[in-house]
Design a protein around this nucleic acid. Structure first.
Lengths: 355, 355
DNA sequence: CTGAAAGCGCTAACAT
DNA sequence: ATGTTAGCGCTTTCAG
């Protein structure tokens, strides 16, 4: 109850209750003491230098350097409500598909002193919520998802957290908050057009089983039907591969397709990795690409331009999505008006030798 | 000055100084109120459930669920000194080389409720320190570096931070703290042996320019000299590529090598990506691999097993390094004895068709 | 322009 | 087994 009962000259022998030992690390207060100013002034030097006269600025900065002060942003974040942390949730970290996005995010954020926290959700939604809660509990200033949120519970948690959310790599009519993506259905249609335009009559599909690959498949099938190439969905030979799909899967899938005895003159693979596998297997079987078989991938991996024949594919600008997502979150975090909550970045058909 | 001057029954009209508005989010105290217990008990339910009787446990958990409480780990971390955050610093996020390590780290940490913060250092050390300070300021419980720390200043900062540090993907006699890696020199020697053992007489090298690639080069050259294949370093035709090296660079480098008019019957490329490029270009030029030219890569990317001919290469267990790094940090964080501060995980030569 | 006080939401230390 | 109290290190608010 008593505040330092009586200011005596003697060292108080009365045990001053208990005390928690500080971490021992240098704090703002230490800097303030050395510089002969208040902690507040040091804080201002760090966070709003424009409000401090140059003389003070330099003096305090010298003190900071002298004591090798490293701020504690956990404390800063707690006090200010801004952590300068951004969370990103990716289905698979090792998938080349999302790397440009992750890299662009990291770089765009780092340039403003923000840091990325990375979480891996996997392709099923089992612990999506747990992961999200763990991320939210760290008070990020924004959350970037490289897909549309699946479960209703997760959507609610995100919405009620009040944290800016950007969903990417997809479109939806009901985004949680902000959205930067492209239409997977349209990609499917565009690929169908490539094959039909070059005269293919017997198309086939090797597809992943994640929701987005499924939607590309839908777009592909619908366009084939619309243009009279096939009568109904079941007319299209399809091999489905469970995500994450690799090179070897494409090779095996192509074998499976051939074993079915299908005649195929146009093949769409739902990732470039699968397409490369198909390409290799076709060569082994002396099937000429593109003359006997046209092949179209998706994703435009770095390697795809250098295969022989070079792979015709669909290029997605993952880097741009990462940059835009970072921009939206930074704008929100700094209270600026947000450029555009919903953006369709589209895609680009890359015509190469394989189709 | 005054503490609630006179406890009166009336609502004090005296303005109670100022007050900061809480974030509005549900706090421990809210849960405590609903459950009719103290905040401390709720904290114990969350952090050391084994010390709480089952009845209380269930009661409090019900309250937590009811008010949809999400803990604030910024506050928790500040109070306890443990953030359950681990920082990782990678030269290039998009490089396939480090993906397995990042993924393994993320997964191993997530299983214990820890979260990964990712930083990209680039291949030069310009802002290594700034990045490190930014990461350190977030109070991580551990820092994983996918290389040996370069600058002395960075080493000091790391050491004085008191945070457990694991350097990976390399060996050194003077680790900052813990170390999990393999010898790049030994990799170079091993590759030289592969080529020499199959009778190559005119080896060449396409190499990256980062410090580790340079050390593989040294090991390669020294073994060639030791076995009498070349007389001195300058006898070896070398094309150096600046990191990050891609597929296309390998192709161009091989062109450069041929343009020099070198006769080459054995080629080592310091990454698989470079080797794949060389393989493609060799095919274009009707150079038979491995009969006229043996090719050995480094890294064993997923695609390397499926090229034609399949690539002989050196496999590094990035996943294992990530798991071990996570394990060491978790052990330290939980005050357990640490398994082994320094571990050489070695590497494996993967003999395939190209050599 | 600078400083003092209060408190962000939580856990450690002590007390019961 | 549970509660009380005092901070963790910082920023916000208000007062000069």
């Amino acid at each position: 109850m008593s505040h330092t009962p009586i200011p005596s000259d003697l060292d108080s022998p009365i045990p001053l209750r208990r005390t928690r030992r500080g971490s021992g690390r240098t704090t703002l207060a230490d800097v303030a003491r050395v510089a002969g100013v208040s902690a507040q002034t040091v804080s201002r030097v760090l966070n709003s230098p424009e409000t401090v006269p140059v003389a003070t600025l330099e003096h305090v900065r010298a003190a900071i350097a002298q004591v090798r002060y490293v701020p504690n942003r956990l404390a800063g974040g707690l006090a200010s409500g801004r952590s300068k942390l951004v969370a990103a949730l990716v289905p698979a970290i090792a998938s080349p598909v999302f790397q440009e996005t992750i890299q662009a995010l990291t770089q765009s954020l780092a340039s403003k002193g923000y840091q990325l926290m990375l979480g891996e959700s996997g392709y099923d939604d089992a612990d999506e919520i747990q992961l999200l809660e763990n991320l939210i509990s760290r008070g990020p200033d924004g959350i970037v998802l490289t897909r549309v949120v699946q479960s209703e519970l997760a959507r609610q948690r995100l919405a009620s957290s009040g944290i800016p959310v950007v969903e990417t790599w997809d479109l939806t009519d009901t985004p949680v908050d902000m959205l930067i993506g492209f239409s997977h259905e349209d990609v499917g249609s565009a690929v169908a057009d490539i094959l039909l335009d070059r005269g293919c009559q017997a198309p086939a599909l090797i597809s992943g089983d994640d929701p987005r690959a499924r939607r590309r498949r839908t777009g592909f099938v619908n366009r084939l039907i619309a243009r009279g190439c096939i009568g109904r969905e079941s007319d299209l030979p399809v091999v489905e591969i469970s995500a994450p799909a690799h090179f070897g899967d494409g090779r095996r899938a192509f074998v499976a397709l051939m074993d079915k005895g299908c005649h195929v003159d146009g093949l769409h693979c739902s990732t470039d990795a699968l397409a490369l596998g198909a390409l290799i297997e076709a060569r082994e079987r002396n099937i000429a690409v593109p003359d006997q078989l046209a092949v179209v991938g998706f994703g435009d991996q770095v390697t795809s331009a250098y295969t022989s024949p070079a792979l015709t594919t669909v290029r997605i600008d993952g880097r741009r999505m990462g940059q835009l997502a970072a921009q939206l979150i930074l704008e929100r975090a700094e209270g600026k008006p947000v450029s555009a909550r919903i953006q369709n970045v589209g895609f680009e058909v890359v015509q190469r030798a394989s189709a």
